[in-house]
Structures are given as structure tokens and as C-alpha cells.
Design a protein around this nucleic acid. Structure first.
Lengths: 213, 213, 213, 213
DNA sequence: TATGAATGAGAGTTCATTCAT
DNA sequence: AATGAATGAACTCTCATTCAT
């Protein structure tokens, strides 16, 4: 059983390598250029080998999406659970958090946003979508907790914490998509992070009760 | 000549029918389910017939995207050119405008947001992408004009009008993607419009100098 | 019946116009570019109209080939039947004849040579092929007659007249194909006719008994 | 590395098998019957498999044509470089050479002759056409060298060696096309080789200065 | 464990042809 | 007589996937 565990661990390592390759391919050629052959090439395997580690292409993509989403949720929950007397201080940490999330894997993040948009594109199994959705809800609830605290203490607008969380999340998704799309036409410019900070700044200012920002 | 015009018009009608079918298929089955066969089925044609009206599948999709983008830009430019003494009044009209745009064609709008993200997915010809980008820029500049006025009169934050416009546009895209994606899991709820209004409200409040909202 | 005849005649005129258009299209775009649509365009008709005059595309092509072949045979038989005391004088007229044939319609001639090569290309009906073959044989026999005379009078090599005729025809076909193919790469040069004359000259010299040419 | 070489070799073998199948299909059903499906059938593969060995149908055809043309040129250049005191002796070897070329692959040879004729038919890439043309020119120059020697020594007609070479090549192409086409109607008879020899004999006799043949 | 080899299932496209008007 | 509109039948090509080795 020890050996089985060790094998398991090695298998996990290989899976990670393949996921990494997939990330790279998606980043370089987009989702439609991400064929099993390209991914295998990048991972120094042959396509058939990928099927030893993933049941199908959709399974592989699902793993990718889940890992990205997991990263997001972990970050948010870590922030939510930090003890912090002033709720506005937590808000100020959000732009950094979102920056990290963005840098984690912009390409997969974009795919995720889109695929989340429902019938969007791939044949991701219903239960994987369900998992993604669960994670997304956890993330939103985590964010909402941050806001709920601020609202309770009378520092934030008395809107539903969920609405505030959804808004932040939407703005994040939108900035990534939109600014990334502009980079397609002018790759030399990368406004994502600065736009992200400016936009979040405006939004948070709008959320605070007295608008002192 | 009258007859030639009439024929032309009928052809345009059929093109519109096909585009409508394409819209419906995309809405129902997503972009990847939108095969020429599905679209033809929906339009009560055979696939070959579609090629009488569109040179290729990408041509058809391009028409769809361009029409959506054109709608957006027309709306924005119409607003920008309205005479209005108080610049903040124009801001207040933006949520309605974005609602109309959203209702124009949610599915295609989502595809558009994603496809704009570059290598994203389809084989849209480079020059069509360029056209889309031009339109997008016109839209952003239109929006920016609205903000520039407010900034000049000292009513809005002294940020670049383009940044403000990008932020609004990003928030719009993000809300549509995110709230639509939630509808996938709970189709009975449609929060898009209400979230849109709430989110825009917060954002605009954050943009105004004195935060009087 | 007079009117029927008149109608018939008009129909023939239209058929000729269409054949002319087909010739032009084949000349300009090659056999594979010769779609019914292209031909119809050239003839200022719509594709459907062509079917009033020809049962099918292959029928149309067959007409084209037959007319080219008929022209060849007519030319040869006219020459064969000319009274001429010296058989070598007739040989000297052959290069001119072949030039005329070549000029009659280079593109169709090439197609014809190829299609004659059997399973070559189109779905020409078996009986049309048979007709073409009959014509070709008449042509060859006509040529053979010219040579037979010369052989009988001891002026030409004592080879089978059919062999001599086949050789002339082969050389003709080959020169047209080969020199035309070179024009594809250097359209400014047209060596067909001069090569034709030089080649025929050599061949005829080789055929004459004493080689006095 | 040995194994890599072995794998490579096996792949080459399969490529050859497929080319062979393609040859057979073209021979049996003509160029228009040569669909990827027919070729795959003949090679006991499914169509998709062919794409493991050739990038496209045109790539496959190009291989076929290039190999035929290469064979021709190799033969000619080998002859041209043979040391031989009497230039007329080389001429006498030409019919044998052409016989071998003809037997190498009559069907593809016919297609080649025709396709060389330019806009002829297939979507062979421009650069492949260019390669074919280069090879053809090398062949013609090789032939021309044979004649140039004879001319220089005063044994052949003082025509341009290129003209002589073109004429021989044309006669060859023409005989193959024409006699093969007759075989279509009477498959029992194969006059190609005998006609080839007779025709070349006459031509060479016409080329020699004193006509001693 | 890894992969060479093969393929099933489909997608987009083209084009000769038909037929009601 | 002419054609607008539509389509059936092919065809080339791609790609996720399988399986014997």
C-alpha cells in the first residue's frame, strides 16, 4: 500500500505536468488550438498517453477549471477568515487578491469565465459543472462575508452582501476579458492590472457609506 | 428595378431569418452546438441553402457579431450626442441603455465578449476582428465622451475618461457573463438586469466627486 | 412547322452562344474552374437556363468536344479529298491545317486530348465517347489516306499509313499540351505554332523516302 | 536511433503502399474517380488514415507526380552523362528510355502530362507546380544536351537543341495520350510501345543531317 | 508505462441539378 | 423562356479516442 501510495503520488505529479502543458497551450493558442495533440506535444508525451491520466479531454479541461477555481476560492476564504478589526481593511486587500488570481492563469481564467457562462462550449460533465458552481458559490459567499461584516458595522452600503460580492466578481471577470481582448490587438500593452485596481477602487468607493473611499 | 429591389429585400429577409435561427441555436445549445446543420434545421433549410446567403460559417457568425456590436455602438453614440445640460443625467441613463443592449441578444453578446478575447476561439477573419475592434473603440470613445464632460465640469473623478469607460464596459460584460452563468443552474432566476442596475449604481456613485450619488 | 423550324433554329443559336461561353470559361479558368455557374455567368444566363439547352453538364461538354472534333475531321477530309497530283504537296499543307485546328479552340482541344485518354475525367456518356472515337477514326483514316497515296507512289516510308497518321496526330496533341503548359509559366511566349511547324517538318522529312524533305 | 530509423522506414513503406493504391485507382477509374475514399479502400485503410501519411490530397497527388517526373529526369540525365563517342548512338537509346518511362506508371504519366498543361485541373500548390516545372526543364535540358552534341559534330539538323528536345518530349506525351486513349476502346491492343518506337524512328531519321537514319 | 497506428464520427463546403413560378 | 430558390450527394479534412504491442 505504501508503494501504491507512492505510485499514486507519481501519477499525480504527471497529471500536474500535463495540466501545466495544457495551460501553456491554451495561453499560447487559445482554447480552440488546444488539441490533445498540442497538449501532448508540450508535455513531451504522445496523445494516447494523456488518456492514462485523464479519462477524456473534457475530464482534463475540467481538472484545469477546477484547479483554477479552487485557487480562487482558497484565496478568498483565506482572506475572509483573517482576523481583522476594520472591515474596510479587508476590502483594500481585494485588488491584490484579484491580481494574484489573474496572474495564476489568465488564459484558463478566461476560458472558465466563458465556460461558466453555461452551454458555453464544452461537454463538461454535469457534475463537474455542479462542482464548479459549488466552488463559485463558496467563493461568492466568502466575499459576501467580507462585505456583510462591513455592512453590519455600518461602513458599507446596505445592499445585499451577495449583490456586492457578485458585483466585485463580475467586475473582475469583465476587466480580465475586456483588457485581455485589447491586448490581442496591441500585445505590447497590458492594462489588466492597472485597470483592475482603478476599477476596483471606484467600485469600493461607491460601496462605502460616506464615500470617503 | 423595383422588382430587383424587392428581390433584394426578400433575400435580406431570408438572411435575417437565418441569423435569427443562428441566434436561437446559440442561445439553446451554445456556440459549440451551433453547427451549420443545427442552424439550417432551425431555419427549416438544408445546410447547403445557408451558403446561398452567407459565404461561410464564419461569415454568418461575423454578421451576427457585427450586428450586435453595431447595436451597442449605435445606442452609445445616440446617448453621447443627446444634448443634456447636466452630465450626471446622462450617467443615469446608462443602466437603461445597457439593459436594452443586454436584451438585444444575450447569447450572441456573451459569445461576442468571449470571442473578442482574441485567440479565443473562432476563425473569424482578421479584418472582421478588426472591424469589431473598431466598433468597440467607437463605443468606448462614445462612453468616454459622456464621462469627459462630467470630469470637465468637476462632477466626476479626475480619472482618464477612457478608464472610466473601460470600467463601465467591463462591468457590463462581467455582469452579463456571470449572472447568465448562474441562470444556467437556476434558470428560473434572472438577476442580470437587477444586478446590472445595482452594480452600475455603485460604480457611478464611486465615480462622482462628492459621492452624493 | 415553319415556326417550329424557326424556333429550332433560335434554339440552336442559343446553344452555340452557351458553347461559346463554355469555351471561354475553360480557356480562362481551366476545366476544373468551368462550373455551370461560371458558364452561365459568361453567357448572361442563370445556371437553370442552361438545362433548357443541354440535358446535363456532361452533355454540354460532349457537344463542345464533338464540335471540336468535327472541325478537325472536316478539315482533314477536305484536304484528303482535294485533287493533287503530288502527294508530298498535301503533306506540306498539314502544318497549316493543324495550326487552324489549334487556333479553333486551344483549351477545348487540350481537354479533348485528355478526355480522349479514356477514363480521363468526366462522365461523358459511353455513346458520346463512341461518337468521338468514330470521328477520331475518321480523322485518322483521312490522314492515312494522304499518306497511303504517298506510300503507293514510293515517295514515303513503307510504314502502315495508319501508323504514320497516328504519329502525326500524336505529335500534334503532344505539342499542344507541352507548349501550352510552358505558356502557363511564361504566358508571354507562345511557341505552339512555331514548334508545331518545326516538329512537323522534321517528322515529314523523316517520313520521306529519300529524305530530301 | 536504429529504431527511429526503422520506424521511419516503415512509415516510408506505408507511404509507398498508399501511393501505389493511388496509382491503381487512377489507372482504374481515372483522376476524377481518385477520391480519398477510393484510395483508402484500395490501400485497406480508412480515409482518415491517409492523413497520417500525407498532409492533404493534393500533397498525395504531388508526391505521385513528383516521383513520376523524378523518374523521367533521372533516366534522361543518366543517359546524357553516359560517355559515348557517337552522338547518334545515344539517340538510338532514347526509345528504350521512353519505353521504360512509359511503363513506370502510364496512368500517372498521363495525368502528369495533362496537369502540366497548367490551369488544367487540380489544386496542386503553386510551388509544387514550380518544382514540377523545374524538373521538366532539367529533363528538357538533359535531352537537349544529347542533341547539342550531335549538332556540334554535324550529324544532326542545325535546329535549336531545345526545339529538338521539346519535339521528342511532345511526341512522347502525344503518343502516350493518344494510344492509351485507343486502348480504352480496345483494351486488348497495346500499341503504345510499338507506335512509340516507330514514331521516334521517323523523327530521328528526320533529324539526322543526311537522313541515313 | 508508453505509444504507433488506426479510425469513427462529424464538420464545413461545393456543385450539378430540379422545379414551381 | 427564364430563373429564384432549394437541395442531395459528394468530398476533403480534423480530432478525440482506442487498442495491440
Amino acid at each position: 500500500m505504501a508503494s501504491s501510495t507512492r505510485k499514486e503520488r507519481e501519477k499525480q505529479v504527471r497529471r500536474q505536468e500535463i495540466l501545466e502543458a495544457a495551460r501553456a497551450v491554451i495561453a499560447a493558442k487559445g482554447l480552440s488550438g488546444a488539441t490533445m495533440e498540442e497538449i501532448a506535444d508540450k508535455a513531451d508525451y504522445k496523445p494516447a498517453t494523456l488518456y492514462l491520466y485523464f479519462g477524456s479531454k473534457d475530464d482534463l479541461l475540467a481538472s484545469l477549471y477546477l484547479s483554477a477555481m479552487q485557487f480562487v476560492v482558497d484565496e478568498i476564504e483565506a482572506l475572509a477568515q483573517q482576523p481583522e478589526p476594520d472591515p474596510l481593511q479587508k476590502l483594500k486587500k481585494l485588488p491584490d487578491l484579484l491580481s494574484r488570481v489573474y496572474r495564476f492563469d489568465p488564459a484558463v481564467l478566461m476560458s472558465l469565465f466563458y465556460m461558466q457562462a453555461g452551454k458555453g462550449y464544452s461537454n463538461i460533465a454535469a457534475d463537474t459543472l455542479e462542482q464548479l458552481n459549488q466552488l463559485a458559490q463558496r467563493g461568492i459567499r466568502g466575499l459576501a462575508g467580507v462585505f456583510a461584516d462591513g455592512i453590519a458595522r455600518g461602513r458599507l452600503e446596505m445592499l445585499s452582501p451577495i449583490v456586492l460580492a457578485d458585483t466585485v466578481w463580475s467586475l473582475f471577470a469583465g476587466v480580465v476579458l475586456w483588457e485581455e481582448s485589447k491586448r490581442f490587438f496591441d500585445p505590447s500593452k497590458d492594462h489588466v492590472e492597472s485597470t483592475l485596481r482603478a476599477a476596483m477602487g471606484l467600485l469600493f468607493k461607491g460601496m462605502t457609506k460616506d464615500c470617503a473611499g
